[in-house]
Write a protein that binds this DNA or RNA. Structure first.
Length: 743
RNA sequence: GGGCGAUUAGCUCAGCUGGUUAGAGCGCUUGGUUUACAUCCAUGAGGUCAUAGGUUCGAUCCCUAUAUCGCCCACCA
């Protein structure tokens, strides 16, 4: 096929990808004679769309995989997508809203099925874009986090942990709506400004300002700032005082969270009903004491207020406190923000709700050890502290989420044994109801079930299948990171597949640094827990691609850059190379548009170098009446200075590309190839070649150097190099993707 | 408030272990109708390496302080 004077990426890219895929070149074969090289693609959201961060991620991983594949290793790159539990459910609910519906209009199973269909309908998008990018992933090993194989591994890990005593249930403070009888995620909670009375209430010698006097019986400490001179003498003391429920005692603790300038500088710590207080409680080992139940009424901890609704209890408490002279003053115009749910603007309470936890102490210890002893290396090195600090401070991990779209926790509650289970469901007429299980017909609840809330001491059975007729399954799902944390195990078929035995542990985990805490640390923990080995030897963290204005890309700022636009305008190769420029030191970087243009120009330059060679060798053939010879290393001694220089230059380049790739210095490797090909091979050698008498020698040397440059460049710019390769006469008939890497 | 990092040419950024005239791309100057390429070729200008101290024979690089900016986490009882 004749080469046009301009490189047209549009006509080349899809054709080349098809050739690769149909040729089976992405498929990795287990071969005991070869060394394995494995990368697991960090799974993008199955129903999402490619963003610049994904493009950079795929570009880097494809470079590594193509490089190792050409070096003769059994290079496996496993693709997959994530169900992205919460994010996807939120997206879906926005769709529902357009139809005037919400998740409360469907029972759990129906809602799950609807989201499943939604995701299936949309997943072609991201999969298509991975192909468009030229990613040489092994599609035959594709995984989705909700595939049956994935579920099986995730559930059995949970069972194993449960057997090992690493799983427990405890209350966790979440956003709870009494109006809906369910929890809301942080993202579903909106804050509205409200004016409420701020009561200054005496606690013995101290006074606390609060808008929530009814929660005072959930207080388990008073807190002051450690630097607050006024209260230094109370720190560590236990103070006694009287209130409407009688004699009380509370310890005074010091915590820098407390703002001395607010109110009196003394904070009542109510871990059960405030997120921050909960955190303080964790730091100081305070008891979590709830004063209200899931029914929206005060519980036994509220003494004589038991059974009252919250608003009533507050009114009553203030009356009682006032009559006892314990209200120092009231600020009637205190403006603050209160949480409400996004649907009905009804109050959200912070409430301890039973959740599932993992004990992390033993796991995190090992996750730190592998970094200390060099079994796991984090690049760039200065990011390591982000990992270690976070893991060191990790609390027990709440793995359950009150989200439908996810892997359901395989725990079952017997209705007979637990008649007080709290349930929410659609009755046979489609009406939303919630309350105690024993107040309803069991089958009706089971059929229309939306959620079950079991108190933390409720008896349960762990089982992947329903253990009996009267059982309801836990409605909580696993935190997305619980399943994606097992991604290396899932994708390679842990524990006994041949792939797993051959390819695990993987070589490098490449991802954006912003998820090193949430994701990388979890994979390390699960990997070591299941196999005793870190799931990867290296972690390479790339910087975030920011917008052209240097800010984070976001829909709100309207500074998003759509990769599609650049694929279209400059080609995949150019965009990949342009982004690689930002990886030089692992820092975040503004989208380097100029570099994309530079590499688009470079693509055209390389293209024309090939054209020039073809024309020259054609001319030679006609005048000499024979084909051009192939260069071989034995000729090296007889070469003229210019020839030796360019061949030595190629060898030096090969060495430096290898060294840079070994160190994950992609930008240096790319720039090296760019300058050698343009400045040395084109501007110097080619220009000089035009006036050479011994065209046969010069052209042979040129072809040798150029073909090897194409190989070096191929991992970076796979499409154009493959297309040029197919147009050049050469000894090696295999496609470039599976040709051998220069020595 | 806690953490991480940055400040180098007009712009976006390299500069890995302190050591010649501090580099690239884009942009800009001037010139170019050589059939590979104008997405090109040749040429030139442009930098007190944020500021102030310190360590050193020597600092863009190491240390301290200041200023400004960005990101992550937490955000007011």
């Amino acid at each position: 096929m004749p080469m046009e004077s301009k490189y047209d990426h549009k006509s080349v890219e899809s054709k080349i990808y098809k050739m690769w895929e149909e040729g089976g070149y992405f498929k990795a074969e287990r071969d005991p004679a070869k060394k394995p090289y494995t990368i697991i693609l960090p799974p993008p959201n199955a129903s999402g769309k490619m963003h610049m961060g994904n493009v950079l991620m795929i570009a880097i991983e494809d470079i590594l995989i193509r490089w190792k594949r050409m070096q003769g290793l059994s290079a496996l790159w496993v693709p997959g997508t994530d169900h992205a539990g919460f994010e996807t459910q939120t997206t879906f609910e926005r769709e529902l809203k357009k139809e005037g519906k919400s998740r409360f209009d469907f029972d759990r199973n129906t809602l799950y099925q609807k989201i499943w269909d939604f995701v299936q309908k949309n997943r072609y998008l991201i999969e298509g874009q991975i192909r468009q990018m030229g990613a040489s992933v092994d599609w035959s090993r594709y995984r989705f986090t909700l595939d049956p194989q994935s579920l099986k591994i995730v559930q059995s890990t949970f069972e194993k942990m449960h057997k090992d005593g690493l799983i427990y249930r405890d209350d966790y403070v979440v956003n709870y709506s009494f109006k809906w009888g369910t929890t809301f995620s942080d993202a579903e909670v909106v804050f509205v400004e409200k004016i409420d009375p701020l009561y200054y209430i005496k606690y013995g010698p101290l006074t606390v300002a609060t808008v929530r006097p009814e929660t005072k019986w959930g207080d388990t400490a008073l807190a002051v700032n450690p630097n607050d001179e006024r209260y230094k003498k109370y720190i560590g003391q236990e103070i006694s005082f009287t209130d409407p429920l009688g004699e009380q005692k509370l310890k005074v603790i010091a915590d820098s969270y407390v703002d001395s300038a607010f109110g009196t500088g003394v904070l009542k710590v109510t871990p059960a009903h405030d997120k921050n207080d909960y955190e303080i409680g964790l730091r100081h080992g305070l008891q979590v004491k709830s004063v209200m139940g899931l029914d929206g009424r005060m519980n036994e901890n509220a003494g004589k207020y038991k059974g009252l609704k919250i608003a009533e209890a507050r009114k009553q408490a203030i009356e009682d406190l006032t009559s006892m002279g314990l209200v120092e003053k009231v600020d009637q115009n205190y403006t603050h923000t209160v949480p409400v749910d996004y649907r009905s603007n009804d109050y959200i309470e912070m409430l301890p709700v039973p959740n599932w936890f993992i004990k992390v102490d033993s796991l995190k210890k090992k996750a730190l050890e592998v970094v200390e002893n060099g079994e796991l290396n984090i690049y760039p090195k200065w990011r390591e502290v982000t990992y270690t600090r976070w893991v060191e401070n990790m609390h027990d991990w709440a793995i359950s989420r009150q989200v439908v779209w996810g892997i359901r926790i395989p725990a079952w509650y017997s209705a007979k044994e637990n008649p007080t289970l709290e349930v929410a469901f659609l009755d046979k007429d489609g009406n939303y109801k919630f309350g105690k299980l024993s107040d309803f017909d069991f089958d009706e609840v089971k059929n229309g079930l939306q959620r079950v809330t079991a108190a933390k001491n409720t008896k349960y059975v762990i089982s992947e299948t329903c253990p009996g007729d009267d059982y309801l399954q836990e409605t909580d799902t696993f935190d997305t990171w619980f399943s994606s944390g097992q991604w290396p195990l899932i994708t390679l078929g842990y524990p006994d597949s041949d792939d797993f035995k051959y390819y695990y542990p993987t070589n490098v985990l490449e991802t954006g640094w912003e998820i090193v805490t949430r994701w990388v640390s979890r994979m390390v923990m699960f990997g070591i827990y299941a196999t005793g080995k870190s799931p990867f030897k290296d972690v390479y963290l790339h910087g975030m691609v920011r917008a052209v204005d240097g800010k984070k890309m976001s829909k709100n700022l309207g500074n998003n850059i759509d990769p599609d636009e650049y694929f279209e305008k400059y080609g995949v190769d150019a965009l990949r190379m342009g982004l690689i420029f930002g990886t030089a030191n692992g820092k975040d970087f503004a989208f380097p548009k100029d570099k994309v243009i530079a590499y688009r120009n470079f693509a055209n330059k390389v293209w024309n170098m090939a054209r020039f060679f073809l024309m020259e060798s054609d001319t030679y053939k006609q005048s000499a009446g024979k084909e051009l010879n192939f260069y071989s290393d034995e000729q090296h001694a007889e070469l003229v200075e210019a020839d030796k220089k360019i061949i030595d230059g190629l060898n030096a380049l090969t060495k430096s590309v290898n060294e840079n790739l070994d160190k994950y210095r992609f930008a240096d490797a790319a720039e090296g190839i760019y300058h050698f090909m343009w400045d040395e091979l084109a501007s110097r050698y080619l220009e000089n070649l035009k006036s050479r008498e011994d065209k046969d020698a010069a052209l042979a040397v040129f072809r040798h150097v150029f073909l090897n440059c194409l190989k070096l460049l191929h991992p970076f710019m796979p499409f154009i190099t493959e297309e040029i390769w197919s147009n050049l006469p050469k000894e090696d008939a295999t496609p470039l993707i599976v040709s051998s890497w220069p020595k």
